[in-house]
């Protein structure tokens, strides 16, 4: 498949995803007059920000034919470490006061744990799935050990990033959009990004043409870890607490967003824009369900249904796209 064809297919997927997002929006807006409010759109963007950031990192990993199941555990451990190293707990108020150091410590930790994943994959030659499944348990266990599985309310600068507002939008929204834009630019314009896609598309060919596969893998996983920690910082900043479940299940949400957005689980094809749209879709569904007072048991059903519709729309658009391709016509003939 040529690059042009890959991009066209991705374009078709983006259109189908946009159509599903619009349909979901229209559906919820007809059921709740608050759904289409500007305030609520700000709300959806803010709630989608951690997923968007984590999913952008995961897009790079999947593009290189990898997977990072430990991204949520990295968020947990990075925050636990940062709080332990930069915070001071008051026994009287039960609150841990933080300093600005919490940011560099958390982000550097995320970067390091991501790079450790890559090192394990490169050195042990294990599949990314098994490696990150193992590190998921290790990182989560270490996080629990550091926090003592306690709920840690926090105060000070750690709250600033998650709660700051710029032009009435949460600062995390701008951070998420900026990170997504950087991810898109990286994959589309930067040679290293193109090399990641080439590695994911055909590892053997990539290595034979002289690409430094191990270095690329370290880069992808380190960025994913960094994004996991950034997502954790936003979540903790907003909730005001480090809880033992922080990041639990995050891997599934971000992988769903990435795959739904059109990135291939088998590498070589990635769409950061699709990832952003899918993150918004997943968040909008939850938001709309609460606004319409839906039955709590219906949440998973509706989520699953929307996913199926999005995947089906993608399949249809891909079929429509490939049906007219010279290759398919040639094969049919």
């Amino acid at each position: 498949m040529t690059t042009r064809r890959r991009l066209s297919r991705t374009g078709a997927q983006l259109w189908s995803l946009t159509a599903v997002l619009l349909l979901v929006g229209i559906g919820f807006a007809s059921l709740s007059d608050r759904f289409a409010d500007l305030d609520n759109l700000r709300n959806v963007l803010l709630q989608a920000a951690p997923t968007m950031i984590g999913a952008t990192g995961m897009t790079l990993v999947l593009a290189a034919r990898g997977i990072d199941l430990s991204i949520g555990a990295i968020a947990n451990l990075s925050l636990a470490l940062a709080i332990a190293l930069s915070g001071t707990r008051s026994e009287a108020t039960l609150v841990t006061d933080t300093t600005w150091l919490v940011y560099p410590i958390a982000l550097l930790s995320g970067l390091l744990f991501g790079a450790l994943n890559a090192a394990a994959i490169n050195i042990l030659r294990l599949t990314p799935l098994i490696t990150t499944l193992g590190t998921l348990a290790v990182y989560r266990g270490l996080g629990l050990h550091i926090t003592g599985a306690a709920l840690i309310p926090v105060s000070g600068p750690i709250l600033s990033f998650g709660r700051a507002q710029v032009f009435d939008f949460g600062l995390p929204v701008f951070a998420a959009l900026m990170i997504a834009a950087m991810g898109w630019l990286f994959l589309a314009q930067v040679p290293l990004g193109r090399q990641l896609l080439a590695l994911g598309g055909s590892p053997r060919s990539a290595i034979e043409t002289g690409l430094r596969a191990e270095r690329l893998i370290v880069l992808a996983y380190a960025i994913s870890g960094l994004c996991g920690a950034a997502a954790g910082l936003i979540t903790v900043g907003r909730v005001g607490v480090v809880n033992p479940d922080l990041g639990d299940g995050m891997e599934f949400t971000v992988i769903t967003a990435v795959v739904l957005g059109g990135t291939s689980l088998f590498g070589g094809r990635a769409s950061v824009l699709g990832t952003v749209l899918a993150s918004l879709l997943l968040t909008a569904v939850d938001n709309g369900m609460t606004l319409t007072g839906a039955n709590p048991y219906a949440y998973d059903v509706v989520r699953g249904f929307v996913l199926l519709v999005a995947v089906s729309a993608d399949a249809v658009s891909t079929y429509m796209h490939t049906r007219g391709s010279p290759l398919i016509r040639e094969l049919r003939a």
Partner: peptide
């Protein structure tokens, strides 16, 4: 039992 989901649920409900 997730505090983050409690936050988002409260945020959405107060919006509506």
């Amino acid at each position: 039992w997730n505090p983050q989901k409690a936050l988002e649920g409260t945020e959405n409900a107060m919006q509506a």
